[in-house]
Design a protein around this nucleic acid. Structure first.
Lengths: 340, 340
DNA sequence: ATGAAAGCGCTAACAT
DNA sequence: ATGTTAGCGCTTTCAT
């Protein structure tokens, strides 16, 4: 910057003003400085800038996802990015693979880099470790799942409601034994969806058959295996509720492999690419992942803009998309043939 | 850091040494400093550190993608992240949506933050603007597509070879009129795949019917529309080569809507989720997106480790995955019924 | 093994 | 409208 100042024949303050687009510099001077910057290939050093600046903003946020490559997560990522971009802010992204330790490592790396805020899809069981961070002024927003032991803004989908709707929809098509494919209950969304599943059964006066409720699944392969076991087992379900995008893929593949994709109904939580091109097309309860990301970013920047009101929890609605697989009727209970 | 030093009753130099894990501090002192850090909730300021340090590494890289939410790109992203993580480096990710201006903006933001290196899926038509950056020591690697007017490391898939294999495969199943669904030829991958498509035709002695070669597509909807037009047109192709993941989705949907999915063959470039669960399952030429990302990161870190050898271009192989849609035979040319 | 002091490149007062 | 100077929090000599 000194070099630029020297070449332009001005003081460093003036160069600083030009670089930061501040008023109070004559157009001719601006031009001279610009030229000098160009000539010297000057790169503004944000680190020095941040160090000295009073507001100390890095124009950088961190995004901790379960996995940047999971389509749900990457759509959420894009929602965050678009809003951040509109504010001139760059996004660090990282995956923690449902590992609380990895989450803390990532947050540590982000905090050392003095990000202005952090948006996270939490994996840890306890977020009180973020308390000091929040006190120091870092904005923190939780998305997809709530914070635990920490008072922070959050955005989630209506998991309970979505699962209820899925079960109600299947019940309305005559199903009484509905399998549940879910993740580990330590994951809040998995627990909530199971709750919606159970609540809906209770409200409908249907018993939940514990034999067809699977939790602790992690991959599409897990779900495929579980589905195969369930439908070839002793009390085969007539419908499957898959509580996550990967599980829907696994369930569909299992049923196809067994030739049961036209007789066993499926409703998935979360939309999946090509779900509407399958035979039958897959009925899903669709979330709005980009909306989750955008909303989380909005909450974050509101805090960065100085909002100190009490934390809030936003719940985004989900939408049932009937496409075929969820409208397969249960076989008549009197033993008559399948499909209405 | 001064506070920590005061509380621990040592000098700042010692604290610095402890924070950076340098030798030459007695174990007891280390313990005292650690305790003080804990008590005061001290956060190491990387910006100050970077400013003063001689090597000036930020342990940060930038990743410029076409779109973080595109499954191909996000898988690549994950490949980069995993390698970067093994080196303790954080990744800035951004989308430029095939917009060269946006690419330059992102690179500018990254360079102001003094990232150690940049990996990009380029959108710009000219990358000479990066020359100064490279000279200043920032490592730059291009992935998925080569650099233009800049000598830099690059990693791509075997686009020409993959397209050739696709056409040869279709030709081997009797197809003579193969449609091509491609993106704008300004995108290198699109141009290469079209070249492979054309080369294969030439090698097989098949004429390329210009009426069934579509380029300039951007979305699944574009591809769906184009497919519909082609197969309902005057010289309908008996097979479709879709040169990109989204286009395969569009082609499949169009054929299904017309009830032609069992009679018109499809081979897609790039794998797609659930492609193997469709009826018929979709034959694709699969790339290894995570491998592209990992390889790009490896090249980048090799440079950061001081490698000054000539730039290199790595080409990753692709693999034809026959699943059904690509093995549909062309109708007999004598007018007999379809399928062999 | 430890500390004092200089200075990285910049911005913010406070000048003029 | 522009320049001078102090100092942000750290690392790095160079001491001891």
């Amino acid at each position: 910057m000194l070099d630029v100042a020297a070449l332009a024949g001005v003081g460093v303050t003036t160069v600083s003003r030009v670089v930061n687009g501040k008023a109070g510099v004559s157009p001719e001077t601006v031009e001279r400085v610009r030229a000098a910057i160009e000539r010297l290939d000057y790169r503004h050093n944000v680190h020095a800038s941040i160090l000295r600046r009073s507001d100390a903003k890095t124009a950088t946020i961190g995004l901790v996802l379960e996995d940047v490559a999971n389509p749900f997560m990457s759509a959420l990522h894009r929602g965050v990015e678009d809003y951040a971009r509109s504010r001139g802010v760059l996004v660090f992204a990282g995956s923690c693979d449902e590992d609380g330790r990895r989450e803390q490592e990532l947050v540590g790396a982000l905090r050392a880099r003095r990000v202005d805020g952090i948006i996270l899809v939490p994996a840890a069981a306890d977020h009180s470790y973020l308390l000091a961070e929040v006190r120091l002024g870092t904005a923190v927003v939780f998305v997809d799942r709530p914070a635990r032991f920490l008072d922070a803004d959050g955005v989630t989908s209506d998991n309970v409601g979505g699962a209820r709707v899925a079960v109600e929809h299947l019940a309305a098509h005559g199903h009484q034994t509905i399998a549940h494919l879910g993740a580990a209950l330590s994951i809040a969304t998995a627990a909530e969806r199971l709750r919606g599943f159970t609540d809906a059964h209770a409200a409908l006066g249907l018993p939940v058959d514990p034999d067809v409720v699977r939790t602790g699944l992690a991959t599409a392969e897990d779900a495929q295996e579980a589905t195969t076991e369930l439908v070839t087992g002793t009390s085969p379900p007539t419908a499957v509720f898959s509580a996550q995008n990967y599980f829907t893929i696994g369930a569909v593949k299992a049923l196809r492999a067994l030739g049961l994709h036209r007789s066993v109904a499926v409703v998935g939580f979360d939309d999946v690419v090509l779900a509407d091109a399958l035979e039958p097309a897959v009925t899903v309860v669709a979330q709005d992942p980009a909306g989750l990301g955008r909303t989380a970013a909005e909450l974050l920047f509101r805090r960065l803009d100085g909002d100190v009101s009490p934390t809030r929890q936003v719940v985004l609605p989900v939408e049932l998309l009937p496409r075929g697989s969820g409208e397969i009727r249960a076989p008549q209970s009197d033993g008559a043939g399948p499909r209405a």
